[in-house]
Design a protein around this nucleic acid. Structure first.
Lengths: 198, 198
DNA sequence: TACGATACGGACCAGCGGTCCGCTTCCATT
DNA sequence: AATGGAAGCGGACCGCTGGTCCGTATCGTA
Protein backbone atom coordinates (compact mmCIF):
# COMPACT_ATOMS: atom_id res chain seq x y z
CA UNK A 1 0.00 0.00 0.00
CA UNK A 2 2.98 2.30 -0.09
CA UNK A 3 1.37 3.97 -3.07
CA UNK A 4 2.52 2.16 -6.16
CA UNK A 5 5.12 3.71 -8.36
CA UNK A 6 3.78 5.67 -11.33
CA UNK A 7 4.23 4.34 -14.80
CA UNK A 8 7.25 5.53 -16.73
CA UNK A 9 5.36 7.53 -19.35
CA UNK A 10 3.26 9.16 -16.67
CA UNK A 11 6.37 10.33 -14.86
CA UNK A 12 7.91 11.63 -18.06
CA UNK A 13 4.80 13.53 -19.04
CA UNK A 14 4.46 14.99 -15.59
CA UNK A 15 7.98 16.31 -15.72
CA UNK A 16 7.47 17.65 -19.23
CA UNK A 17 4.33 19.44 -18.14
CA UNK A 18 6.05 21.07 -15.18
CA UNK A 19 8.96 22.16 -17.35
CA UNK A 20 6.68 23.58 -20.00
CA UNK A 21 4.55 25.41 -17.47
CA UNK A 22 7.61 26.88 -15.82
CA UNK A 23 8.89 28.09 -19.17
CA UNK A 24 5.59 29.64 -20.16
CA UNK A 25 4.97 31.36 -16.84
CA UNK A 26 8.52 32.68 -16.83
CA UNK A 27 7.83 34.23 -20.21
CA UNK A 28 4.91 36.26 -18.94
CA UNK A 29 6.77 38.17 -16.28
CA UNK A 30 9.34 39.60 -18.63
CA UNK A 31 6.77 40.94 -21.04
CA UNK A 32 4.55 42.25 -18.26
CA UNK A 33 2.07 39.51 -19.05
CA UNK A 34 -0.58 38.04 -16.86
CA UNK A 35 -0.10 34.46 -15.65
CA UNK A 36 -3.80 34.07 -16.20
CA UNK A 37 -3.19 34.37 -19.92
CA UNK A 38 -1.43 31.02 -19.92
CA UNK A 39 -4.11 28.43 -20.56
CA UNK A 40 -4.03 24.75 -19.79
CA UNK A 41 -4.19 24.09 -23.51
CA UNK A 42 -1.09 26.22 -23.98
CA UNK A 43 0.81 24.24 -21.39
CA UNK A 44 -0.33 20.93 -22.84
CA UNK A 45 0.75 21.97 -26.32
CA UNK A 46 4.12 23.25 -25.10
CA UNK A 47 4.71 20.00 -23.23
CA UNK A 48 3.66 17.92 -26.20
CA UNK A 49 0.93 16.11 -24.31
CA UNK A 50 -2.84 16.10 -24.39
CA UNK A 51 -4.90 18.31 -22.16
CA UNK A 52 -6.44 15.29 -20.47
CA UNK A 53 -3.00 14.22 -19.32
CA UNK A 54 -2.52 17.50 -17.54
CA UNK A 55 -5.73 17.15 -15.60
CA UNK A 56 -5.06 13.52 -14.85
CA UNK A 57 -1.66 14.34 -13.40
CA UNK A 58 -2.53 17.46 -11.42
CA UNK A 59 -6.25 17.45 -10.88
CA UNK A 60 -6.83 21.02 -11.90
CA UNK A 61 -5.06 24.22 -12.78
CA UNK A 62 -4.37 25.11 -9.17
CA UNK A 63 -2.85 21.68 -8.59
CA UNK A 64 -0.42 22.15 -11.42
CA UNK A 65 0.71 25.54 -10.19
CA UNK A 66 1.01 24.28 -6.65
CA UNK A 67 3.13 21.34 -7.77
CA UNK A 68 5.38 23.65 -9.71
CA UNK A 69 5.70 25.98 -6.77
CA UNK A 70 6.55 23.26 -4.34
CA UNK A 71 9.15 21.77 -6.62
CA UNK A 72 10.98 25.08 -6.45
CA UNK A 73 10.33 25.76 -2.81
CA UNK A 74 11.79 22.45 -1.71
CA UNK A 75 15.37 23.59 -1.13
CA UNK A 76 14.25 26.56 0.90
CA UNK A 77 11.99 24.39 3.00
CA UNK A 78 14.86 22.03 3.70
CA UNK A 79 17.17 24.88 4.61
CA UNK A 80 14.61 26.15 7.07
CA UNK A 81 13.83 22.82 8.65
CA UNK A 82 17.24 21.24 8.97
CA UNK A 83 19.78 23.72 7.71
CA UNK A 84 22.48 25.85 9.34
CA UNK A 85 21.91 29.38 10.61
CA UNK A 86 20.57 31.87 9.90
CA UNK A 87 17.65 29.92 8.40
CA UNK A 88 17.94 26.74 10.41
CA UNK A 89 16.36 25.94 13.75
CA UNK A 90 19.39 26.76 15.84
CA UNK A 91 19.10 30.47 15.17
CA UNK A 92 17.74 32.72 17.93
CA UNK A 93 14.09 33.58 17.25
CA UNK A 94 14.35 37.26 16.44
CA UNK A 95 17.19 36.82 13.97
CA UNK A 96 15.49 33.84 12.45
CA UNK A 97 12.30 35.72 11.78
CA UNK A 98 14.25 38.34 9.90
CA UNK A 99 16.19 35.72 7.98
CA UNK A 100 13.03 33.82 7.05
CA UNK A 101 11.29 36.89 5.72
CA UNK A 102 14.33 37.90 3.75
CA UNK A 103 14.60 34.43 2.27
CA UNK A 104 10.92 34.47 1.39
CA UNK A 105 11.27 37.83 -0.31
CA UNK A 106 14.27 36.63 -2.28
CA UNK A 107 12.41 33.53 -3.31
CA UNK A 108 9.54 35.59 -4.61
CA UNK A 109 11.91 37.90 -6.42
CA UNK A 110 13.66 34.96 -8.04
CA UNK A 111 10.41 33.19 -8.85
CA UNK A 112 8.09 36.07 -9.46
CA UNK A 113 6.17 34.23 -12.13
CA UNK A 114 5.51 31.25 -9.90
CA UNK A 115 4.57 33.13 -6.78
CA UNK A 116 2.28 35.36 -8.77
CA UNK A 117 0.63 32.46 -10.51
CA UNK A 118 0.18 30.64 -7.24
CA UNK A 119 -1.40 33.46 -5.28
CA UNK A 120 -3.60 34.35 -8.19
CA UNK A 121 -4.60 30.76 -8.79
CA UNK A 122 -8.27 30.14 -8.55
CA UNK A 123 -10.69 31.92 -6.32
CA UNK A 124 -9.61 30.11 -3.20
CA UNK A 125 -7.86 32.30 -0.71
CA UNK A 126 -4.08 31.94 -0.65
CA UNK A 127 -4.40 31.59 3.11
CA UNK A 128 -5.83 28.12 2.91
CA UNK A 129 -2.81 26.65 1.20
CA UNK A 130 -0.80 24.19 3.24
CA UNK A 131 2.48 25.97 2.63
CA UNK A 132 1.09 29.23 3.94
CA UNK A 133 -0.05 27.51 7.11
CA UNK A 134 3.45 26.17 7.60
CA UNK A 135 5.12 29.53 7.23
CA UNK A 136 2.61 31.17 9.47
CA UNK A 137 2.87 28.56 12.20
CA UNK A 138 6.63 28.74 12.09
CA UNK A 139 6.70 32.51 12.32
CA UNK A 140 4.06 32.70 15.01
CA UNK A 141 5.99 30.18 17.07
CA UNK A 142 9.15 32.16 16.79
CA UNK A 143 7.40 35.36 17.76
CA UNK A 144 5.98 33.63 20.77
CA UNK A 145 9.49 32.63 21.78
CA UNK A 146 10.88 36.08 21.16
CA UNK A 147 10.68 38.61 23.96
CA UNK A 148 8.25 41.48 24.01
CA UNK A 149 5.74 40.63 21.38
CA UNK A 150 2.07 39.87 21.68
CA UNK A 151 -0.71 39.12 19.20
CA UNK A 152 1.69 36.65 17.63
CA UNK A 153 -0.78 35.22 15.17
CA UNK A 154 -1.78 38.52 13.70
CA UNK A 155 1.79 39.78 13.65
CA UNK A 156 2.90 36.71 11.75
CA UNK A 157 0.16 37.23 9.19
CA UNK A 158 1.00 40.89 8.83
CA UNK A 159 4.69 40.21 8.34
CA UNK A 160 3.94 37.61 5.70
CA UNK A 161 1.59 40.03 4.00
CA UNK A 162 4.52 42.36 3.43
CA UNK A 163 6.01 39.79 1.08
CA UNK A 164 2.92 39.08 -0.96
CA UNK A 165 3.63 38.18 -4.52
CA UNK A 166 1.57 40.87 -6.17
CA UNK A 167 3.11 43.53 -3.95
CA UNK A 168 6.59 42.29 -4.78
CA UNK A 169 5.67 42.25 -8.43
CA UNK A 170 4.26 45.75 -8.23
CA UNK A 171 7.42 47.10 -6.65
CA UNK A 172 10.00 45.10 -8.54
CA UNK A 173 8.17 44.67 -11.80
CA UNK A 174 8.08 48.26 -12.90
CA UNK A 175 11.75 48.65 -12.07
CA UNK A 176 10.88 51.20 -9.43
CA UNK A 177 12.74 49.36 -6.75
CA UNK A 178 15.89 47.30 -6.89
CA UNK A 179 16.31 44.01 -5.17
CA UNK A 180 18.51 45.49 -2.49
CA UNK A 181 16.17 48.37 -1.83
CA UNK A 182 13.35 45.96 -1.23
CA UNK A 183 15.44 43.73 0.98
CA UNK A 184 16.62 46.57 3.12
CA UNK A 185 13.13 48.02 3.28
CA UNK A 186 11.74 44.74 4.48
CA UNK A 187 14.63 44.21 6.87
CA UNK A 188 14.05 47.57 8.48
CA UNK A 189 10.34 46.97 8.68
CA UNK A 190 10.85 43.59 10.27
CA UNK A 191 13.40 44.90 12.72
CA UNK A 192 11.01 47.57 13.86
CA UNK A 193 8.23 45.08 14.39
CA UNK A 194 10.17 42.52 16.33
CA UNK A 195 12.57 44.86 18.06
CA UNK A 196 10.09 47.57 18.88
CA UNK A 197 9.12 46.54 22.34
CA UNK A 198 12.51 46.42 23.97
CA UNK B 1 -18.82 69.94 -21.97
CA UNK B 2 -20.00 69.67 -18.40
CA UNK B 3 -20.85 66.12 -19.32
CA UNK B 4 -24.56 65.95 -19.96
CA UNK B 5 -26.86 64.50 -17.41
CA UNK B 6 -27.71 60.84 -17.90
CA UNK B 7 -31.17 59.90 -18.96
CA UNK B 8 -33.65 59.05 -16.26
CA UNK B 9 -34.00 55.35 -17.07
CA UNK B 10 -30.24 55.00 -17.27
CA UNK B 11 -29.85 56.44 -13.79
CA UNK B 12 -32.55 54.19 -12.41
CA UNK B 13 -31.06 51.10 -13.95
CA UNK B 14 -27.60 51.99 -12.73
CA UNK B 15 -28.89 52.33 -9.19
CA UNK B 16 -30.83 49.09 -9.46
CA UNK B 17 -27.74 47.28 -10.68
CA UNK B 18 -25.61 48.56 -7.82
CA UNK B 19 -28.26 47.61 -5.29
CA UNK B 20 -28.67 44.14 -6.74
CA UNK B 21 -24.94 43.56 -6.88
CA UNK B 22 -24.53 44.69 -3.31
CA UNK B 23 -27.26 42.33 -2.19
CA UNK B 24 -25.84 39.39 -4.07
CA UNK B 25 -22.27 39.93 -2.94
CA UNK B 26 -23.42 40.36 0.62
CA UNK B 27 -25.10 36.99 0.37
CA UNK B 28 -21.90 35.21 -0.52
CA UNK B 29 -19.96 36.14 2.55
CA UNK B 30 -22.45 34.74 5.00
CA UNK B 31 -22.56 31.37 3.34
CA UNK B 32 -18.81 31.24 2.87
CA UNK B 33 -19.33 31.74 -0.84
CA UNK B 34 -16.95 33.04 -3.40
CA UNK B 35 -17.67 36.47 -4.88
CA UNK B 36 -16.46 34.99 -8.14
CA UNK B 37 -19.54 32.80 -8.16
CA UNK B 38 -21.72 35.83 -8.76
CA UNK B 39 -21.98 36.24 -12.51
CA UNK B 40 -22.88 39.31 -14.47
CA UNK B 41 -25.98 37.51 -15.67
CA UNK B 42 -27.00 36.92 -12.05
CA UNK B 43 -26.68 40.60 -11.25
CA UNK B 44 -28.59 41.61 -14.35
CA UNK B 45 -31.40 39.22 -13.51
CA UNK B 46 -31.57 40.35 -9.90
CA UNK B 47 -31.68 43.97 -11.00
CA UNK B 48 -34.33 43.26 -13.59
CA UNK B 49 -32.27 44.61 -16.46
CA UNK B 50 -30.51 43.16 -19.46
CA UNK B 51 -26.91 42.11 -19.37
CA UNK B 52 -26.05 44.65 -22.03
CA UNK B 53 -27.26 47.42 -19.74
CA UNK B 54 -24.77 46.37 -17.10
CA UNK B 55 -21.86 46.56 -19.48
CA UNK B 56 -23.07 49.83 -20.95
CA UNK B 57 -23.24 51.39 -17.50
CA UNK B 58 -20.01 50.05 -16.00
CA UNK B 59 -17.81 48.96 -18.87
CA UNK B 60 -16.92 45.61 -17.42
CA UNK B 61 -17.16 43.51 -14.30
CA UNK B 62 -14.32 45.30 -12.59
CA UNK B 63 -15.95 48.63 -13.31
CA UNK B 64 -19.14 47.56 -11.62
CA UNK B 65 -17.37 46.36 -8.52
CA UNK B 66 -15.24 49.45 -8.39
CA UNK B 67 -18.31 51.68 -8.63
CA UNK B 68 -19.97 49.76 -5.84
CA UNK B 69 -16.88 50.01 -3.70
CA UNK B 70 -16.45 53.71 -4.19
CA UNK B 71 -20.06 54.42 -3.41
CA UNK B 72 -19.45 52.91 0.00
CA UNK B 73 -16.00 54.34 0.53
CA UNK B 74 -17.14 57.90 -0.11
CA UNK B 75 -17.92 58.86 3.50
CA UNK B 76 -14.61 57.51 4.72
CA UNK B 77 -12.74 59.39 2.04
CA UNK B 78 -14.49 62.60 3.03
CA UNK B 79 -13.72 62.05 6.69
CA UNK B 80 -10.09 61.59 5.84
CA UNK B 81 -9.78 64.57 3.54
CA UNK B 82 -11.74 67.21 5.34
CA UNK B 83 -12.96 65.75 8.60
CA UNK B 84 -12.11 66.24 12.26
CA UNK B 85 -9.45 64.28 14.14
CA UNK B 86 -8.39 61.59 14.41
CA UNK B 87 -8.96 60.91 10.69
CA UNK B 88 -8.79 64.46 9.40
CA UNK B 89 -5.72 66.36 8.26
CA UNK B 90 -5.17 68.23 11.51
CA UNK B 91 -4.10 65.09 13.37
CA UNK B 92 -0.38 64.62 14.09
CA UNK B 93 1.15 62.17 11.60
CA UNK B 94 1.82 59.20 13.86
CA UNK B 95 -1.63 59.17 15.39
CA UNK B 96 -3.21 59.71 12.03
CA UNK B 97 -1.48 56.73 10.50
CA UNK B 98 -2.85 54.53 13.24
CA UNK B 99 -6.31 56.00 12.88
CA UNK B 100 -6.32 55.54 9.12
CA UNK B 101 -5.33 51.91 9.32
CA UNK B 102 -7.92 51.23 11.97
CA UNK B 103 -10.58 52.91 9.86
CA UNK B 104 -9.52 50.90 6.85
CA UNK B 105 -9.70 47.68 8.80
CA UNK B 106 -13.14 48.53 10.12
CA UNK B 107 -14.31 49.37 6.63
CA UNK B 108 -13.15 46.04 5.36
CA UNK B 109 -14.77 44.26 8.26
CA UNK B 110 -18.04 46.06 7.61
CA UNK B 111 -17.86 45.53 3.87
CA UNK B 112 -16.10 42.23 3.62
CA UNK B 113 -17.99 41.18 0.54
CA UNK B 114 -17.13 44.34 -1.33
CA UNK B 115 -13.50 44.52 -0.40
CA UNK B 116 -13.07 40.88 -1.24
CA UNK B 117 -14.81 41.23 -4.57
CA UNK B 118 -12.75 44.29 -5.41
CA UNK B 119 -9.34 42.86 -4.63
CA UNK B 120 -10.20 39.64 -6.38
CA UNK B 121 -11.62 41.40 -9.40
CA UNK B 122 -9.94 40.53 -12.59
CA UNK B 123 -6.37 39.63 -13.10
CA UNK B 124 -5.13 43.16 -12.74
CA UNK B 125 -3.13 43.80 -9.62
CA UNK B 126 -5.01 45.57 -6.84
CA UNK B 127 -2.06 47.90 -6.64
CA UNK B 128 -2.90 49.69 -9.84
CA UNK B 129 -6.26 50.91 -8.63
CA UNK B 130 -6.59 54.64 -8.12
CA UNK B 131 -7.94 54.29 -4.61
CA UNK B 132 -4.93 52.25 -3.54
CA UNK B 133 -2.58 54.87 -4.88
CA UNK B 134 -4.38 57.49 -2.84
CA UNK B 135 -4.13 55.56 0.39
CA UNK B 136 -0.53 54.75 -0.24
CA UNK B 137 0.44 58.30 -1.09
CA UNK B 138 -1.33 59.59 1.98
CA UNK B 139 0.32 57.09 4.28
CA UNK B 140 3.75 57.50 2.78
CA UNK B 141 3.48 61.26 3.16
CA UNK B 142 2.54 60.94 6.81
CA UNK B 143 5.40 58.56 7.47
CA UNK B 144 7.76 61.01 5.86
CA UNK B 145 6.51 63.68 8.22
CA UNK B 146 6.75 61.45 11.25
CA UNK B 147 10.05 61.24 13.05
CA UNK B 148 12.37 58.29 12.85
CA UNK B 149 11.15 56.34 9.89
CA UNK B 150 12.82 55.59 6.59
CA UNK B 151 11.86 53.56 3.52
CA UNK B 152 8.52 55.33 3.71
CA UNK B 153 7.16 53.91 0.48
CA UNK B 154 7.78 50.32 1.38
CA UNK B 155 6.56 50.80 4.92
CA UNK B 156 3.31 52.29 3.66
CA UNK B 157 2.80 49.33 1.36
CA UNK B 158 3.57 46.87 4.12
CA UNK B 159 1.16 48.51 6.54
CA UNK B 160 -1.59 48.49 3.95
CA UNK B 161 -0.86 44.85 3.22
CA UNK B 162 -1.76 44.04 6.80
CA UNK B 163 -5.34 45.04 6.04
CA UNK B 164 -5.75 43.13 2.82
CA UNK B 165 -9.26 41.94 2.22
CA UNK B 166 -8.52 38.26 1.90
CA UNK B 167 -6.45 38.29 5.07
CA UNK B 168 -9.23 40.04 6.94
CA UNK B 169 -11.68 37.57 5.53
CA UNK B 170 -9.48 34.67 6.52
CA UNK B 171 -9.20 35.88 10.10
CA UNK B 172 -12.71 37.19 10.63
CA UNK B 173 -14.58 34.85 8.34
CA UNK B 174 -13.98 31.65 10.21
CA UNK B 175 -14.90 33.32 13.45
CA UNK B 176 -11.42 32.71 14.75
CA UNK B 177 -10.88 36.33 15.62
CA UNK B 178 -13.30 38.93 16.85
CA UNK B 179 -13.45 42.43 15.55
CA UNK B 180 -11.78 43.86 18.63
CA UNK B 181 -9.03 41.30 18.60
CA UNK B 182 -8.18 42.24 15.06
CA UNK B 183 -8.30 45.94 15.79
CA UNK B 184 -6.04 45.66 18.77
CA UNK B 185 -3.69 43.37 16.89
CA UNK B 186 -3.40 45.84 14.07
CA UNK B 187 -3.09 48.76 16.47
CA UNK B 188 -0.22 47.10 18.27
CA UNK B 189 1.45 46.19 15.02
CA UNK B 190 1.12 49.72 13.71
CA UNK B 191 2.37 51.25 16.93
CA UNK B 192 5.43 49.10 16.83
CA UNK B 193 6.18 50.06 13.25
CA UNK B 194 5.80 53.79 13.61
CA UNK B 195 6.95 54.08 17.18
CA UNK B 196 9.84 51.69 17.00
CA UNK B 197 12.64 54.08 16.26
CA UNK B 198 12.18 56.49 19.09
C1' DT C 1 4.00 -13.37 -25.68
C1' DA C 2 -0.30 -12.29 -23.96
C1' DC C 3 -3.24 -9.82 -21.11
C1' DG C 4 -5.08 -6.58 -17.58
C1' DA C 5 -4.17 -2.27 -15.71
C1' DT C 6 -2.84 2.27 -16.54
C1' DA C 7 -2.38 6.30 -19.05
C1' DC C 8 -3.08 8.95 -23.34
C1' DG C 9 -5.24 12.77 -25.99
C1' DG C 10 -8.27 15.58 -28.33
C1' DA C 11 -13.22 16.01 -29.31
C1' DC C 12 -16.53 17.62 -26.40
C1' DC C 13 -19.27 20.29 -22.80
C1' DA C 14 -21.13 23.94 -19.74
C1' DG C 15 -20.58 28.43 -18.34
C1' DC C 16 -18.21 32.73 -18.28
C1' DG C 17 -17.31 37.80 -19.67
C1' DG C 18 -18.24 40.63 -23.23
C1' DT C 19 -20.45 42.32 -27.94
C1' DC C 20 -24.07 43.50 -31.24
C1' DC C 21 -27.93 45.46 -33.19
C1' DG C 22 -33.03 45.77 -34.00
C1' DC C 23 -36.31 47.85 -31.04
C1' DT C 24 -38.00 51.02 -27.28
C1' DT C 25 -37.93 55.07 -24.46
C1' DC C 26 -36.86 59.64 -23.56
C1' DC C 27 -36.72 64.63 -24.20
C1' DA C 28 -35.72 69.02 -26.81
C1' DT C 29 -37.85 71.43 -30.18
C1' DT C 30 -41.68 73.25 -32.65
C1' DA D 1 -49.39 67.93 -28.40
C1' DA D 2 -46.84 66.24 -31.97
C1' DT D 3 -42.40 64.64 -33.67
C1' DG D 4 -37.82 63.21 -34.81
C1' DG D 5 -33.47 61.84 -33.65
C1' DA D 6 -30.44 60.67 -29.86
C1' DA D 7 -29.78 57.69 -26.04
C1' DG D 8 -30.59 53.51 -23.94
C1' DC D 9 -32.33 48.73 -23.74
C1' DG D 10 -31.88 43.60 -23.61
C1' DG D 11 -31.08 39.02 -24.74
C1' DA D 12 -29.33 36.19 -28.55
C1' DC D 13 -24.88 35.49 -29.72
C1' DC D 14 -19.61 34.82 -29.72
C1' DG D 15 -14.94 33.34 -28.38
C1' DC D 16 -12.64 31.15 -25.02
C1' DT D 17 -11.79 28.81 -20.74
C1' DG D 18 -11.31 24.99 -17.28
C1' DG D 19 -12.66 20.56 -16.99
C1' DT D 20 -14.70 15.71 -18.62
C1' DC D 21 -15.03 11.45 -21.36
C1' DC D 22 -13.93 7.36 -23.47
C1' DG D 23 -12.02 4.73 -27.47
C1' DT D 24 -7.25 3.72 -28.22
C1' DA D 25 -2.31 3.02 -27.26
C1' DT D 26 1.21 1.87 -24.04
C1' DC D 27 3.24 -0.31 -20.09
C1' DG D 28 4.71 -3.96 -17.02
C1' DT D 29 4.01 -8.54 -15.43
C1' DA D 30 3.26 -13.63 -15.55
Amino acid sequence: MPERAPRKDAARNRAAALAAADRLFAGTVAGAGDPGDITMADIAAAAGVGKGTLFRAFGDRTGLIRALHESRLGPLTDAVETGPPPLGPTTPPAQRVAALLDALLCFKLDNRHLALALEGAGADSPYRAAHYERWHALLAGLLRAAPGTTAHDFTAHALLAATRADLVEHLAGAGDATREELRSGLAEFTARVIGGAG
